[in-house]
Design a protein around this nucleic acid. Structure first.
Ligand SMILES: [Mn+2]
Ligand SMILES: [Mn+2]
Ligand SMILES: [Zn+2]
Ligand SMILES: [Zn+2]
Lengths: 133, 133
DNA sequence: TTATTATTGCAACAAAGTCGCATTAATTAA
DNA sequence: TTAATTAATGCGACTTTGTTGCAATAATAA
């Protein structure tokens, strides 16, 4: 099952790149210049995940978010996603936090998947709020 | 708006205590000895959260989970929930991991809420699997 | 007992995500 | 270039989760 190059696929990828933020399905759909079915968007995103271009996580709103992988061409080292994602409650941007975290599990516990999500206020927005005072 | 003591409320609390695992709405409903409406269960659980008896988090399945708070009577120290939750993919149990974690955010970022969730295999289940080999 | 109002059940609803299936279109083979 | 193959899409149907409005019920206070 080889991947085909389609306009929809390119458009989704373009939006993800342009916005520079992790996006939920609905955020993405509202930014698309070409209208596209909901199921199609999910299928495109999940294909990206399978291919390792994108990773998926779940927000504290229960929604799935999708973010471009950095260094995804890098085959040499293991591709981990043990990092937190941060959602700014002011500007709405969702970003990957750089640091890979490690959680110390009790003896005998094994990790299969990691989902870290923090909501708060980003630097830009909190400095704006300071200025307003 | 003072709380009233009702059978439903006691039953939900009893199940949470007995099961010793964080539970999603559907897990809980299936364990109830008294049938109860879905909305009622959510309302009871959310009231527990408001009162600080229970805390809520979101799993990587996008569902809300509810767990009893330990030391909830303890008014002296701040009641934090910056801990991970672990779901065993074998036995299904969801538990709070003891350690409070701290994530180093970029300069100027402020945390409002924390949601940490790890799926994997717990000690009991991974030792069972070893035994089977 | 009676009045007050927190709690419940029920129905309706919105949103998220998935799936089957017929149609379309990208790619490959002829 | 044309025909065959099959990945990708659109659409509708569906499930699950969670919320809300409203009338009925019942715990508590008066
Ligand atoms: Mn990645
Ligand atoms: Mn707690
Ligand atoms: Zn912001
Ligand atoms: Zn287990």
């Amino acid at each position: 099952m080889k991947r085909r190059s389609t306009a929809s696929k390119e458009e989704v990828l373009a939006v993800l790149k342009a916005e520079e933020t992790a996006m939920s399905h609905d955020m993405l759909q509202s930014k698309l210049s070409v209208s596209m079915d909901r199921a199609t968007i999910y299928r495109i995103l999940n294909r990206f995940c399978e291919d390792g271009q994108v990773h998926k996580f779940v927000g504290d709103d229960g929604k799935q978010y999708f973010a471009l992988c950095i260094n995804c061409g890098d085959e040499t080292e293991h591709h981990h996603h043990n990092h937190f994602h941060f959602k700014c409650l002011e500007c709405g941007k969702v970003e990957c936090l750089r640091d890979e975290v490690e959680v110390s599990l009790p003896k005998g516990y094994v990790t299969r998947s990691f989902n870290g999500f923090i909501s708060g206020v980003c630097a830009g927005c909190s400095s704006l709020k300071k200025g307003e005072e």
